[in-house]
Nucleic acid binder design. Structure first.
Lengths: 239, 239
DNA sequence: CGAATAGTTGACTAACGTCAATACTAGTGG
DNA sequence: CCACTAGTATTGACGTTAGTCAACTATTCG
């Protein structure tokens, strides 16, 4: 009589110990869901959102658009990721959030979030953890963009996604569905699509990854990790 | 009978309305201070710090060191900035914090922070605000590094620092003490010192900034802002 | 004064961007 | 089933930005 746990539960379980009651509470929030097409904004820059949005399926992102029209993706939101727990404190959004693929999302009212937090200290702690991990990922991306060559940066991203998707049971030991275009990748890595293409070819030629039909496979995970200098500490996952 | 307000109070006042009682409480935390020489670690990567550190004077930074020895600075900590309110939740530090110049810091025990938060909702809100602004700055840096050419990125940093230092009364309308070396700048911007030098020359040649004796002056702030495409929204400061 | 550190400059190289042409793919309507 | 289209992937030639190496100067500090 039990289905698959929600990605929110799966994810938060990596940040704090959750009781069966905590899990039931967290399952409850995603009873009503919405389907959003690809490349739609979930929250626009300058908005003052009423809801906290939770990604249940698909890939979304935080992004900024520069005056010259260039887009920089500053975070990937995968199933189990929450959009903004705290925008109320900051006032208006300084960036936008949009879908990259078709997404299923749940919208939680502030009241629902407040209830979760007031009822369970584990959940409070887990939500804090999620926020802090988001920040840690941002730092890792910044370091990568500043100091890593493009091919390693790309490899590093693939390593990160393997772990993050495994955490919500959307990746096997060495592969996962990867629905993003090379244009999206370029906007994540701060490169041009042409250069992403070449770096991807390079990784393929080295036998470090394969990418067919939107499925990414890593034949030798330790080898890709060492190539990318990937150290998973920053994701702060429990065993 | 009153001296200059502590930078912590000055800074947090931009994030939330503080009563005189709140201010007094916040002043209280920096009674005992420590002087730390330049280029000293305040918290090492992998540590589990006991204290929250508060910068009172000088420039410090969060940084990561990559396997090849390269350093990437992922945040600047100015007077009024707190080091890590919440590392306890994450476990070990995934980056280090170190001084860039001689610094005066205060060390707050977890208990002191907990007291502050439990006594005043304004302070709680202000600390939240500070955390969220740190994250917003990180996103802005990431976007700049990914999508802005080096000269604009440098100009953008100077604009950001003008506002952040004005917030703690360490900058005039158009200038401030800027003690960092070009090597430090390179580690912030993800460039080499040589290239930073050239970009700085470029800004000087254009009359956008002057930098003498560690004092940075911006002769025409609107002009530098427009050159840098600087939009201060992401700092979320109150009027 | 001398040693170390930081700033400056030039010549050269490597990484990445730009432009443009060509394929490939999925969806659409006939 | 076949165009037809739009978006994406791929490739090559070439331009630009930023990195490397190395010398030299200026500054700081003991």
């Amino acid at each position: 009589m039990e289905g698959k746990p929600s990605p929110l539960v799966l994810k938060l379980a990596h940040g704090a110990a959750l009781t069966p009651e905590d899990r039931a509470l967290l399952e409850g929030v995603s009873r009503e869901t919405h389907l959003i097409g690809p490349r739609q904004d979930l929250i626009r820059e300058g908005a003052r959102p009423e809801y906290v949005q939770l990604v249940l399926e698909g890939f979304a992102c935080r992004y900024k658009v520069l005056p010259d029209g260039g887009r920089q993706i500053v975070a990937l939101l995968l199933p189990g990721d929450l959009c903004d727990l705290h925008v109320t404190i900051l006032g208006e959004m300084d960036h936008a959030i949009g879908t990259l693929t078709l997404c299923r999302v749940a919208r939680l009212s502030r009241g629902m979030v407040a209830d979760l937090v007031s009822v369970s200290p584990n959940i409070t702690r887990a939500l804090w953890w999620a926020t802090l991990v988001d920040e840690a990922v941002l730092r890792e991306w910044l370091a990568g963009m500043g100091r890593r060559p493009a091919d390693r940066q790309l490899a590093h991203l693939f390593c990160e996604l393997l772990l993050r998707l495994q955490a919500v049971e959307l990746a096997s030991a060495d592969s996962y569905d990867f629905p993003l275009s090379q244009i999206d990748l370029a906007d994540i890595l701060g490169l041009t699509p042409v250069h992403v293409n070449r770096m991807l070819q390079h990784l393929r030629a080295e036998g470090l990854v394969t990418l067919h039909n939107k499925r990414l496979t890593i034949p030798d995970v330790p080898r890709l990790r060492s190539f990318a200098e990937f150290d998973p500490t920053y994701l702060h996952m429990r065993p």
